[in-house]
Amino acid sequence: MTLHNQYDVFLSIIETHKGIIYKIAHSFCRDPDDQKDLAQEIILKLWKSFETYNQQSKHSTWFYQIALNVAISYYRKEKSRSNLNVPLSENILNIADFDHNTQAEQKAFFLTQFLLELKELDRALMILYLEERSHKEISGIMGISETNVATKIGRIKVILKQKFSKTEI
């Protein structure tokens, strides 16, 4: 595959899964600049890994593994962020004007905030659950047993419900 073709295939994968990058960046960073920075870092690592990606695992599994691993590592790094080559005033992922004022949006806002309060590994697990990945796929992405996946999801949902019950929405 030539570099040009490789880039085209990569671009189509990013196009298909762009929402995942956005969701993960928003679930791991509160600060908008950090969200942009993380999205860039995820794309960069995806591209780096894409050169050696052997297509043995599903696109989505590979995508989630890279994106979540980068997000967790990024989140855990000390605050000093690298100055990426792309200015942070510009976005790779641009979003059109969006109404955040409905009750559903408020609930979604709280859900994102509550996710941010979870430990990194629990948060990664919960994102996969919310993305409606099967327990089998979550187990493969996370590297824990399916039983463990089910137990942990059950526990985290209880915690989220408790948090929601205090918001009175």
Partner: peptide, 26 residues
């Protein structure tokens, strides 16, 4: 939770656009 997540991000997903030039540069 799943429904909330889905409804919220499906709308965003529709509005998301990739800046191809910037992606290539990156």
């Amino acid at each position: 939770f799943v429904l909330l997540w889905k409804e919220h991000y499906d709308k965003i997903d529709e509005s998301l656009a990739i800046n191809r030039q910037l992606l290539k540069e990156n």
